[in-house]
Design a protein around this nucleic acid. Structure first.
Length: 203
DNA sequence: CAAACGATTTTCT
DNA sequence: GAAAATCGTTTGG
């Protein structure tokens, strides 16, 4: 198994990291129970210059503190009082960039995912959407700051090839209030995969 | 200290 | 398609 190395995450090009994360395996292992999802959809958040980013204008609060860490740790925060959103912190320490994981394809530990989601049957709703996949994989805010090379949360390359031409690009979801930055093409997904939170527009 | 607000999901009409 | 659910964080007085 090829664990993604530290320098995968510390790169300054967060867009590149967001693209490279597609097709990789996101694994959680809590109390010996493993769940795995293949990453199918991501969004890049580009630090102080990005109005849609929590760290826009170098805003620094207890919540977004982890974004300022060296790339390679998890930034998990509570959204709408209900949903735990999982981000991969990128770039060097002091540069608050991150990649939001918005959807995965279930790979391993399906029964546990179903139990966590309180669902009977596997469906797209199981792991499509940032709040949904986090719940399925047990990614709770209590794991905020956890290393992505740890025993409990890690990402590995299972050999899935993703050529750049297989990646779809759109604007990010739910950041309309960020003005022009809300229109930047920073959402990436595996073309043709049903495991994405919003279907690409058809003509 | 009070009040508004989410990088969403689910349910109901 | 609209609206509720739900609460920690952030902001303003």
């Amino acid at each position: 198994m090829k664990l993604l190395p530290p320098d995968f995450y510390t790169r300054a090009d967060t867009v590149r990291v967001a693209r490279d994360l597609l097709g990789k395996m996101l694994v959680t292992r809590f109390a010996g129970k493993t769940t795995t999802g293949m990453i199918t959809e991501t969004e890049a958040y580009l630090g102080a210059a990005d109005k849609a980013c929590h760290a826009w204008g170098w805003r620094r609060t207890p919540r977004n503190e982890m974004m300022y860490e060296r790339g390679g740790v998890a930034y998990i925060y509570l959204c709408y009082g209900i949903h735990h959103l999982f981000n991969v912190v990128t770039h060097r320490q002091g540069e608050p960039h991150a990649v939001l994981v918005r959807a995965v394809e279930p790979v391993e530990g399906l029964p546990l995912m179903l139990r966590r989601r309180r669902k009977e049957k596997v469906s797209l709703a199981l792991t499509c959407g940032p709040g949904a996949l986090s719940q399925a994989l047990g990614l709770h805010t209590r794991f905020n700051g956890t290393s992505l090379l740890s025993e409990s949360i890690f990402i590995h390359d299972a050999g899935q090839k993703v050529p750049q031409t297989a990646i779809g690009v759109t604007t990010r979801i739910g950041v309309e209030s960020a003005g022009a930055d809300g229109l930047l093409p920073l959402r990436f997904y595996l073309k043709g995969s049903p495991w994405v939170s919003h279907k690409p527009r058809s003509h």
